[in-house]
Design a binder for these strands. Structure first.
Length: 940
RNA sequence: GCUGGGGUGGCGAAAUUGGUAGACGCACUUGCCUUAGGAGCAAGCGCCUUCGGGCAUGGAGGUUCGAGUCCUCUCCCCAGCACCA
């Protein structure tokens, strides 16, 4: 039977017109007869043309919208445009276009394209963020947050992009570069508008836990919030009433703090300058850091800094005077902008201390091994012996511990150094030894000595020896000891790789890499706390030195001011004293002026508007001045999903009655690039509104899915630069919307963000699949379906249901392909079977399915047809293939009833040729999993 | 470096969560049909094989009657964070 090709252009246009005319996708938000289901995708920025990534985002989400609708849900599947933003303004500067016209034209074009791909979005609820009817409410919400103190004006060192000529939020700075244009970001001290997202840090973190999101999304948010728990401690400045406040996560190491460091921007630096002996050096250093970009500061990890000579601070634990430094490895914006430095236990402090010759005091004796009950205490030594750049090791037989350094037990009253020298000579024969260093700290190594059947804690002294010469005597060994180990000189690398004992590894690192030393263990050099477990004693120490528990977050407040034109005007005016006031509600929307000059250099374009100045004076009085900054577009997109519920409502920003019913959003599909910005901001916004009783609950998105990326045919990211951009319009013309969307659904799972290359052959294959369906529609009969066909349909329906809910449309389609293969194998297809097939197909190829459906003589659209319910009894087949294994290896298969007993299965298995031989007699044991396998295990 | 997610044919991927590894599709091979067309149909398609089988899910061990799936170690890829005290 020859395969026909359907005319996709005709079919698809007709279907779209029919859906439109029937208003098939307008959701009645008040309908109480059906379960509401809110399916949301991130609304696009109207850049101009729909690209394949948009297809992937909308067409695939649309599959689920259609599926849910057919299952009887009242589906809200809205769309809008995130229409403020820099590209419109750039186009204005480049081509002299009006940003508004440019944006609206793009929106018009994208609307048409979205309709052409057959998305079932509800256009009646469209929102456009640059429309005054929308931004009126953005302004209104800003004012609400301002009244709550959640939007505030503050002076801060902010990130400035010299190319885009605007400040950026922290989130928009990637490795010291502007995330949009990749320019190196500068720091400026400016007064700007912020949102107090830090006040919500804890809730943003805690409320993340129960959400059923992928771990990587949650983890990215957690990392961004960056909670760390520790303490605030105060270090008094000698001869002054001032104290330096530091934040530390390791207050238990305070006795080891040998100096204090301030960030160069720390306000105390100015205050202390007068008493500083080397004022000039400090000023020079501070100027130098100021000139460096953020990137230079973090790229060059060499630790620089200057001591404030003549100034000492007191370590509050030891009461000793310690020096004070400024260094740019301490960040002004984190914690208190000042740290206590503990070189013995912190890598960065250690590096800095080495460079400046500052002492390291070890305050923790590490504990290694595994905790044991009732241990026997013992004095031991471990020694690192070096000669000629190599390290002396004893390579024990594997069961005796493998490669180790020289160790041994200290005899009663013996000096550990003597023990060490004795052990080295006894075990290895070397005699010409020189003691280089004896570690101040000791290692407490806890283990079970099998030879003596005794749990032991070894209190180990660590020693570092050097051979003065390789003079050697015969080792003094018992006869039975001789073949238990070999003495080997190895490089440090080999030692690091092959020594597995923590205690010995610590020793190796202790004398080769130097500090930082171990993280946890028993306190030493810590006054009254000596011998205590460091973690356990930590808070007592904090209390003892007058510190307090504190939690710090990496998250900073969200900077929302932008020195740009094409954004939502901040609804603030300033009185003649420069004090900000919110613009009263009756003046909202506070319109964006139109008489602006974009070429303003570093100043905000709004400052060039005469109309704006006049408007302010007219309304508020003489001397009043406008706010010239506009809002970060992430503010617009932080609440748009609420506006969909009341897109046309002039009196309210949303409909709170409907919100109770529709929010939180059931499923939110978007790109992984929005994990730490949009998603975090929107969650914050929603929580803030919840606290104002303007949102019905505290989390806006129940489920979140990050979609993957469609790559060019060459496996590279699509880009004009590589010439590998796929033009969706061409595809649409050549293969039709159904083929393209089904192909995109088939490339891989939509519930995890993978990278899928666009393969033209694949689109053709998908079109072939659709053509085969079309062809099959010419081979229908009025017969009743056989049970076999019913089973095939039920199986496909079950799979589409299950995997559809998991956003795994690739396997849904494979189930439909299997079903089609089955249908092609029978002489004629019963009409009712084909109808079921079309219903299952409808979400994936909505136009073709609808066309064929109507050709069967049905008036209504397939998209209003009821989704098939699966009869579970049809999923259980009469016979199942049971795998026959002998000793876990497949040796054949038998057909059995699913409920066949073990005896029947065993008999059937044994009757297979060769099974009995392979088995060699009666099985010792039989494992039978009905419907799956029978495993006959030979007697051993 | 830290954290998280991964590694399965030539390619995109499946695998009922411990029970036939590679469903489905693409590419490829062979044959058929034909007024050679980038069409259609049929068969094949992990690797090796002495045709009995044997070996295969990055690698090495382990648990188990049975491991892609669980455990330990290790290598590689991707993402987020990265001087955060």
């Amino acid at each position: 039977m020859a395969r026909e090709r359907y005319n996709h252009q005709e079919i698809e246009q007709a279907a779209q017109q029919a859906w439109d005319a029937a208003k098939l996708y307008e959701t009645d938000l008040t309908d109480a007869t059906k379960d509401p289901y809110y399916l949301l995708f991130e609304f696009p920025y109207p850049s101009g043309d729909l690209h394949i990534g948009h297809w992937y985002a909308y067409a695939i989400t649309d599959i689920y919208a259609r599926m849910q609708r057919m299952r009887g849900k009242n589906v809200l599947f809205p769309v809008g445009f995130d229409a403020f933003g820099l590209p419109a303004e750039n186009a204005a500067m480049k081509q002299g276009a009006d940003p508004k016209e440019w944006t609206l034209q793009n929106i018009e074009r994208m609307r048409r394209q979205m309709q052409a791909i057959g998305t079932s979005v509800d256009w009646s609820k469209e929102v456009i963020t640059c429309d005054p009817s929308y931004y009126k409410w953005t302004q209104w919400l800003f004012a609400k947050l301002y009244e709550q103190g959640l939007a505030y004006r503050g002076e801060a060192a902010v990130k400035w992009c010299p190319k885009d000529k605007t400040v950026l939020a922290n989130e928009q700075v990637i490795n010291g570069r502007c995330e949009r244009c990749d320019s190196e970001v500068e720091e400026k001290k400016l007064t700007q508008w912020f949102m107090k997202i830090t006040e919500y840090a804890e809730r943003l973190l805690a409320d993340l836990e129960p959400l059923p999101w992928r771990e990587e999304i949650k983890e990215a948010q957690r990392a961004w919030i960056g909670k760390s728990e520790g303490a605030r401690l105060w270090f008094p400045i000698v001869g002054s009433d001032e104290r330096i406040e530091v934040f530390t996560t390791r207050p238990d190491t305070v006795f080891g703090a040998t100096y204090v460091v301030l960030a160069p921007e720390h306000p105390l630096v100015d205050q202390l300058l007068a008493q500083t002996e080397n004022q000039h050096d400090v000023l020079v250093y501070r100027e130098a850091t100021k000139k460096k970009t953020e990137r230079e500061r973090s790229e060059n990890k060499e630790k620089t800094g200057v001591e404030l000579k003549g100034i000492k601070v007191l370590n509050p634990a030891t009461n000793k005077e310690i020096p004070l430094f400024v260094a740019d490895y301490v960040l002004a914006s984190y914690g208190t902008g000042a740290v206590m430095a503990v070189p013995a236990h912190d890598e960065r402090d250690c590096e800095f201390a080495k460079k400046h010759g500052l002492p390291a005091i070890c305050v923790i004796d590490p504990i290694t091994g595994e905790a044991q009950e009732n241990p026997f205490h013992k004095e031991k030594i471990v020694t690192l012996v070096e000669h000629d750049g190599k390290i002396l090791t004893i390579n024990w037989r594997p069961e005796l511990g493998g490669r180790l350094l020289v160790g041994g037990s200290v005899e009663e009253g013996e000096d550990p150094a003597v023990t060490a020298a004795r052990e080295i000579t006894e075990e290895t024969g070397y005699t010409d030894l020189e003691l280089v260093e004896r570690a101040e700290e000791r290692v407490h190594h806890s283990y079970f000595a099998f030879s003596k059947n005794q749990a032991v804690i070894a209190h180990t002294t660590l020693l570092h020896f050097r051979l003065k010469s390789d003079a050697r005597v015969e080792p003094k060994l018992e006869e039975n000891e001789k073949d238990r180990f070999t003495v080997e000189w190895v490089t440090k690398d080999v030692a690091e790789r092959e020594i597995h004992d923590d205690q010995h590894l610590y020793t190796l690192a202790r004398f080769t890499d130097r500090p930082p030393y171990g993280k946890d263990g028993l306190l030493r050099n810590s006054g009254a706390f000596d011998g205590r477990d460091n973690r356990e004693a930590m808070w007592e120490m904090v209390a003892a030195i007058g510190g307090e528990r504190a939690t710090n977050y990496r998250l900073r407040d969200w900077l929302v001011s932008r020195q740009r034109y094409w954004g939502c005007p901040i609804p603030i005016v300033y009185d003649p004293d420069g004090k900000p006031h919110r613009i009263p509600e009756e003046h909202l929307p506070w319109l964006l002026p139109e008489d602006v000059d974009f070429q303003t250099g570093d100043a905000a374009p709004l400052a060039s508007s005469q109309e704006l100045k006049e408007r302010v004076e007219r309304i508020f009085g003489e001397g009043w001045t406008p706010e010239y900054d506009t809002l970060d577009t992430f503010v617009d997109s932080s609440w748009y999903f609420m506006r969909y519920l009341a897109a046309q409502n002039d009196h309210e920003f949303t409909d709170l009655g409907l919100a109770k019913k529709w929010l939180p959003i059931d499923r939110y599909s978007g790109g992984s690039e929005h994990t730490t910005m949009h998603l975090l901001y929107a969650r914050f916004f929603y929580k803030a509104l919840y606290d104002l009783a303007l949102a019905p609950n505290a989390e806006p998105f129940t489920e979140r899915f990050n979609r993957g990326l469609i790559l060019g045919p060459d496996g590279q990211k699509m880009s004009k630069r590589w010439g590998n951009v796929v033009n969706p319009d061409e595809m649409l013309e050549k293969y039709g919307a159904d083929a393209v969307r089904a192909y995109l659904a088939f490339v891989g799972p939509y519930n995890e963000p993978g990278h899928y290359p666009w393969k033209l052959d694949g689109v053709e294959g998908m079109r072939r699949f659709l053509d085969r369906i079309y062809t099959l529609s010419g081979n229908l009969s009025e017969e009743a379906p056989t049970e076999e066909l019913q089973r095939a349909v039920a199986k496909a329906a079950a799979k589409v249901n299950e995997d559809g809910d998991r956003f795994k449309f690739n396997t849904c389609l494979s189930a439909l392909m299997v079903l089609l293969n089955d249908l092609e194998a029978v002489p004629t297809v019963p009409k009712s079977t084909f109808e079921s097939f079309l219903i299952l197909l409808a979400p994936f190829a909505p136009h073709l399915a609808d066309h064929l459906w109507q050709r069967l003589g049905t008036e209504r659209s397939v998209h209003s047809a009821p989704w098939p319910t699966v009869d579970p009894s049809l999923l259980v087949s009469e016979t199942v293939t049971v795998i026959v294994q002998v000793g876990g290896k497949k040796r054949g298969e038998v057909l059995l009833a699913p409920e066949a007993s073990e005896e029947e299965a065993k008999a059937a298995a044994l009757s297979l040729p060769g099974i009995a031989d392979t088995l060699g007699g009666e099985p010792g044991r039989t494992i039978y999993v009905p419907g799956r396998i029978i495993n006959l295990v030979p007697k051993s």
